[in-house]
């Protein structure tokens, strides 16, 4: 069964969404999105602290604590985790796995340290891939902003050898665009890796998700915009504060019309509907 994993990018107290991991728009409180996705049958949840790399620390402990009291599916947390101690404290808060990119690229031994301390099942390697003009893929760090000089397939192979138990593979080129997953990238890594690969970045429709499974050979799929804009159609956000770009929520657009004001190329869908249609298309899910 394919795993469907809603991704919540979090900045301060809010879920945000951008394009290419930048240009963030405030969408509302993570607790509301998480509770809805749990009710609708999310197989796991992914929380990413979008500004953590900037400040050098993950700020999600409190949100993770509140989530873990009420949501009984695996929770992966990423963003700004730099040491075994950082991992220990976010696991203690209630995360089941951690997703690490920047700190692992800077210090690959961290992968082994985390795997040795908490098990490989806990150590998810987060890869932010950008396609180069040559057709090769390069790993980016710091939320897609910095070049690492590392080639994606070689880095994944090394990371798995060091103890990474899963790969969260995000296409920075596709992220937030709704143009579909980078199928070539997904297939390249999913076929080569001995561990599960979670495709991320670019889902604009149910068909995109289906292609990541069938053509991309993804073991799991992760998505944000199509679910968030779907959820916003029937969610009331009173308490998002004034931090960040809240124009979208403040415009007082009638709830039913919010999807049309979402990102171009995104066909919003509920998680229940997404799973129902994937099953119809022949991809079994829970």
């Amino acid at each position: 069964m394919i795993r469907i994993i809603p991704r919540l990018d979090i900045k301060g107290p809010n879920v945000v969404k951008g394009v290419h991991l930048e240009g963030l728009r405030v969408l509302g409180r993570p607790e509301l999105f998480a509770a809805r996705y749990y009710e609708e049958g999310a197989d796991e949840l992914l929380y990413m602290d979008t500004v953590a790399s900037l400040y050098g620390r993950n700020n999600l402990a409190e949100i993770v604590e509140r989530t873990a009291e009420q949501i009984f599916v695996p929770l992966t947390v990423g963003g700004g985790l730099r040491s075994v101690e950082d991992v220990r404290s976010i696991l203690r808060a209630g995360a089941d796995k951690v997703a690490i990119n920047t700190a692992a690229v800077a210090n690959p031994r961290l992968i082994s340290e985390v795997a040795d301390a908490f098990g490989s099942q806990c150590m998810v390697l987060s890869v932010e891939a950008r396609r180069l003009p040559t057709g090769a893929y390069e790993c980016m760090t710091d939320n897609g902003r910095e070049n690492s000089g590392r080639e994606v397939a070689a880095w994944v192979e090394e990371a798995v050898r060091l103890g990474a138990g899963e790969i969260l593979l995000t296409s920075v080129d596709r992220e937030g665009t709704g143009k579909g997953y980078d199928l070539e990238l997904t297939r390249l890594i999913a076929d080569a890796a001995d561990v599960p690969v979670i495709a991320c970045g670019g889902a604009g429709s149910v068909e995109d998700v289906q292609r990541a499974i069938v053509e991309g050979h993804a073991d799991a799929v992760c998505m944000a915009s199509i679910l968030h804009y779907g959820a916003l159609q029937s969610m009331q956000h009173a308490d998002y504060g004034d931090e960040g770009n809240v124009d979208f929520l403040k415009r007082k657009i009638p709830l039913a019309a919010r999807s049309e004001h979402g990102r171009r190329g995104i066909e919003p869908v509920s998680l229940v509907e997404l799973k129902r249609r994937l099953r119809e298309l022949g991809s079994p899910c829970r």
Binding site: M1, I2, R3, D43, S120, Q121, G165, E166, D194, V195, P196, D219, A220, R286
Partner: peptide, 9 residues
């Protein structure tokens, strides 16, 4: 079917 088996069954 990769090993470890990670997911819902």
């Amino acid at each position: 079917y990769k090993v470890p088996h990670i997911g819902w069954s």
